[in-house]
Design a protein around this nucleic acid. Structure first.
Length: 498
RNA sequence: GCUCGUAUAGUGUAGUGGCCCAUCAUGAAGCCCUCUCGAGGCUUCGACCCGGGUUCAAAUCCCGGUACGAGCACCA
């Protein structure tokens, strides 16, 4: 390389060019910048069919935030011919108790979003025997122990990098204490936990002898009181990933320490940890911060009408509002898999959604703040109007009387009544053909009173107006001319977005 | 406090030593088209956190700083 540069300096660049032209012409061709499309290549996936999983807590229905995990894992599974496991991590009956309806709704929403059903569904609460048997194994092999310190006591040991007294108990003692944890008349919640023996001097405090299971006495909605000792996420998830043969874990970077904890556990068992990829935190400005438990509270107190209240960021609300799964998928794929913490505006999602719905959304006129206008002069008495200017949709047919409705904001000036005629401020017809560049305004001649509901942040507004007669069924996404897209719901309108 | 992570236009993103006075989308502005303030087409605007170092060559590698975020739960 040095020689080459010296040569270039003394002989000039053109000399090099002519040599290259002879010896290796392909090097001279300008590379064209290529932009990677879609998701980055999944590492370590060329020699195996990937097995991925998405593991929500069924303490409520799926939200916008969940959709990232579903989309990313689902896309990889689909594109690489692998498998997607939908796993219910429902091992907490106390802090985030499972909601029984969620076991039904989550798979439905998963299929709606991904476009295919999960290849496997795993319910943690039905696999408790497995977790117990590995917990037992951990104790018998002396890489786990029952700890009877209080949380505060152990915290001090963790900070001081010192072993807690329970750490050196014999295997026999541990097995006895384990029995006592599982015994109704033994330890009570809070009196003992199962810990994984790692190393109390580890640099990262989060990894020091982390807890694997605890006692819960609150009944589980699916399995009742069959179990008393329940695994914590890091343990349950680690065991289950191995049991299911998960090859790739894609999750938030807030779980980086989970990976490290679980890798230590895998080392004890002699297993290989799956390939792990992380994404950063996503904030959606318009959604603020919602937690499943807070939403549940607010629904119970009637602040929201239900899980599909259009103000909420749940998948059922988005779906109800006319957000398409394709738009959600494009949105998440475009954000990609970086570890950056990002804040995104909903405008991007809406833009993708517009591309999905615009080609099939029939146009309708909706008059907000309607005022009646009498028109004088010659105008067509029967009229056919396009329902969608770019596609072949049946036309809208109306008989025109001399009374029509226009929006108050459009009244009192000379306007073009769309597809009908030019009028002056008093309603006198000036021309049937479009005669100048005056503003084109939508209008209704035969219509019904109708309510348009618009969710905006934490507010919900309804506008009374007149919607032109149509016979589209509920659920149709229409475009209200000059306003935006909306879904027909019980004959009324629910705003999708502009 | 300890540990870990990230830093490219307003917002996202591509880019893994020479294709880069940096890609694409979104956004904003303008024009064209259109009997919608929609869709479509075109144009324009706008960025490599800072400071050192390595190298002929750095957005890219190294070190330091700064900023932001996360974990250190008997939640997931």
């Amino acid at each position: 390389m040095d020689d080459a540069n010296t040569f270039a300096e003394t002989e000039g660049l053109s000399a090099i060019e002519s040599i290259l032209k002879k010896e290796a012409p392909e090097l001279l061709e300008k590379k064209i910048q290529t932009r990677r499309e879609g998701l980055p290549e999944l590492p370590n996936s060329s020699n195996q069919k990937p097995v991925l999983r998405f593991a929500p807590n069924p303490n409520g229905p799926l939200s916008f935030g969940h959709s990232r995990g579903l989309v990313i894992n689902g896309e990889y599974a689909k594109n690489l011919g692998g498998e997607l496991i939908l796993r219910f991590d429902d091992t907490d009956t106390t802090v985030k108790p499972p909601m029984i309806e969620a076991y039904e709704s989550i798979p439905i929403q998963q299929e709606w979003l991904c476009g295919f059903p999960a290849h496997r569904i795993v319910i943690a609460s039905e696999r408790m025997d497995m977790y117990h048997s590995y917990a037992h194994k951990m104790l018998s092999n002396f890489f786990g122990y029952v700890c009877t310190c209080t949380g505060e006591e152990f915290k001090q040991f963790r900070i001081a990098k010192e072993d807690c007294p329970c750490r050196n108990n014999s295997v026999e003692k541990n097995l006895t204490l384990w029995e006592k944890m599982n015994d109704t008349n033994g330890f009570q919640p809070g009196e003992a936990v199962l810990r994984v023996k790692t190393d109390m001097t580890l640099k990262n405090p989060a990894l020091r002898d982390w807890p694997a299971a605890r006692i819960q006495t609150k009944s589980h909605p699916r399995v009742g009181n069959m179990w008393r000792v329940w695994p914590l996420l890091d343990f349950q998830s680690a065991i289950e990933d191995h049991l299911q043969g998960v090859t790739h874990i894609i999750r938030g970077k807030d779980l980086m320490d989970s990976t490290r904890k679980q890798t230590l556990l895998y080392a004890h068992f002699g297993w290989d940890y799956p390939e792990t990829i992380y994404w950063g935190r996503v904030k959606v400005h318009e959604f603020g911060s919602f937690s499943t438990s807070q939403m549940k509270k607010d629904i119970d107190s009637d602040k929201y009408e239900g899980w599909d209240d259009p103000r909420l960021p749940t998948l059922s609300a988005l779906s109800r509002r006319g957000i398409k799964p394709e738009a959600l998928r494009t949105f998440w794929i475009e954000l990609g898999l970086t570890q950056k913490d990002i804040a995104v505006p909903l405008a991007t999602l809406y833009s993708h959604n517009t591309k999905c719905i615009d080609p099939t959304a029939p146009r309708l006129a909706f008059i907000r703040n309607p005022v009646e206008l009498t028109i004088f002069g010659d105008y067509p008495k029967e009229i056919e109007i396009e329902s969608h200017s770019d596609t072949e949709m049946p036309k809208r047919k109306f008989s025109i009387t001399d009374k029509i409705w226009i929006e108050k904001a459009d009244s009192g000036k000379s306007i073009r009544l769309k597809d009908l005629c030019d009028i002056d401020a008093e309603g006198n017809v000036e021309s049937v053909e479009r005669s100048d560049k005056r503003q084109v305004v939508h209008w209704v001649t035969q219509g019904k009173n109708c309510e348009l509901t618009v969710a905006f942040g934490d507010d919900i507004n309804t506008y009374q107006g007149i919607l032109e007669d149509h016979n589209y069924p509920d659920g149709t996404i229409v475009q209200l001319e000059r306003i935006g897209y909306a879904v027909i719901e019980n004959g009324d309108l629910l705003m999708t977005h502009d």
